[in-house]
């Protein structure tokens, strides 16, 4: 079951949506359909010509069927990532 998400509860997660967008936030809620509630959420906008931009979006409720990947962010590794100099194309959307 999506009990699997329990280990991510209240942790900082990296979420990739099927439309190609990337969100980061705290996983405060979820259910068995992988509907999610993210708090302190921000959208991470990747670009090959500009550094990564983070746009705060507050609380986000995401419908399960638009979820692609949920990754647990390792805070230590995260602090080592140089987002100000990371220029990369966004990940292609998951066309369903």
């Amino acid at each position: 079951m999506s009990d699997d998400l329990r280990t991510y509860a209240d942790r900082k997660v990296w979420v990739f949506l099927t439309d190609g967008r990337t969100l980061v936030g705290e996983l405060t809620g979820f259910d068995q359909r992988t509907n999610l509630i993210l708090t302190k959420a921000e959208e991470r906008i990747y670009s090959a010509t500009e550094p990564v931009k983070s746009v705060p979006i507050g609380v986000y409720i995401i419908k399960g069927d638009t979820i692609g990947i949920i990754g647990q962010i390792d805070e230590e590794l995260e602090s080592q990532v140089d987002h100000d100099n990371l220029m990369v194309d966004p990940i292609e959307p998951l066309v369903l």
Binding site: D4, I67, G71, D74, L77, P90
Partner: peptide
């Protein structure tokens, strides 16, 4: 090198539908 987006992610959940 093409996908550095998940550098700080050590474990993940992948939705079966994708």
């Amino acid at each position: 090198s093409r996908y550095p987006h998940m550098m700080a992610v050590k474990n993940c959940f992948i939705r079966g539908s994708v």
